[in-house]
């Protein structure tokens, strides 16, 4: 148990900061996923055929291939792409991406493909009469979407978005293959140097369990809040 103490003799502080990295990684990629997902959903519903096919391809591919492949693609290939794009704009030299950014992008892109489908479904679930009512009040298209459809769609989407948060949180463990010092990576390093596999992996599992249970609690609260107006 001394191995989990705070300070130089134990791994407590390392594990604590690693958890902070995991949490911030999850929050950033989930946020990226939400924003990107909403735009993908809007594109899928309201734009022309070519964009629709491209976006359908995006969500199908990212939901159909293992997360590890996406991470490898960005980790081993992302810097090349960025450098080549930069050389078009006249920048010569290699651009290094920090592993945290690669992690956020990889998990965010995956998360976006899931949340896009959720947003699409929930926007479609809003009754057509709502749009017509908005039109009869002389609202323009943007206003109808922002003030009438989106608020109702979000209420429907919230339970599924909560599930995506849990998925995203668990996906961050995979970023350890890039060497970013999050929980999995630190527990792996600690295990290798201390030859005590059970303590660190069980500690890591407990941290994840605490994180998922806290998010379940918050999720239930948010769902209740958004459903207040619907309870009769």
């Amino acid at each position: 148990m001394e191995l989990l103490y705070w300070g130089n003799n134990g791994w407590g502080d390392e594990i604590f900061f690693a958890s902070l990295i995991t949490i911030s990684l999850a929050v950033c990629s989930y946020g990226l996923g939400l924003i990107l997902g909403l735009y993908i959903a809007i594109g899928k519903l309201y734009s022309n055929k070519i964009v629709k096919i491209l976006l359908d391809g995006y969500t199908t591919v990212l939901r159909g291939i293992p997360e590890l492949l996406v991470i490898y693609l960005l980790f081993f290939g992302g810097e090349n792409i960025i450098t080549q794009v930069a050389s078009i704009f006249g920048y010569s030299g290699f651009i290094n991406l920090p592993p945290f950014l690669i992690g956020v992008l990889a998990i965010g892109f995956i998360s976006a493909s899931y949340s896009a489908e959720v947003f699409r479904g929930s926007i479609q679930s809003v009754h057509k009469g709502q749009i017509e009512a908005g039109l009869s009040l002389c609202l323009n298209k943007n206003k109808i979407f922002n003030k009438v459809i989106l608020p109702q769609a979000i209420r429907v989407a919230i339970p599924s978005l909560g599930n995506i948060w849990q998925l995203t949180l668990k996906d961050t463990a995979l970023i350890s293959v890039t060497g970013l010092a999050e929980i999995m990576r630190i527990s792996r390093v600690a295990t290798n140097s201390e030859r005590e596999p059970f303590i660190f992996f069980i500690a890591a599992a407990c941290i994840f369990l605490v994180l998922t249970s806290i998010s379940t609690k918050i999720q239930i609260k948010i769902e209740k809040k958004y459903n207040e107006s619907m309870v009769r």
Binding site: K170, A173, M184, R188, F201, A205, F208
Partner: peptide, 23 residues
């Protein structure tokens, strides 16, 4: 069910392979 749904698959593999396997 709570444990296996609440932790990443990677941790479960690590625990089994580097934990139980090492032991």
């Amino acid at each position: 069910i709570y444990y296996f749904r609440g932790t990443p698959l990677l941790i479960q593999i690590y625990l089994l392979y580097f934990g139980v396997g090492y032991w």
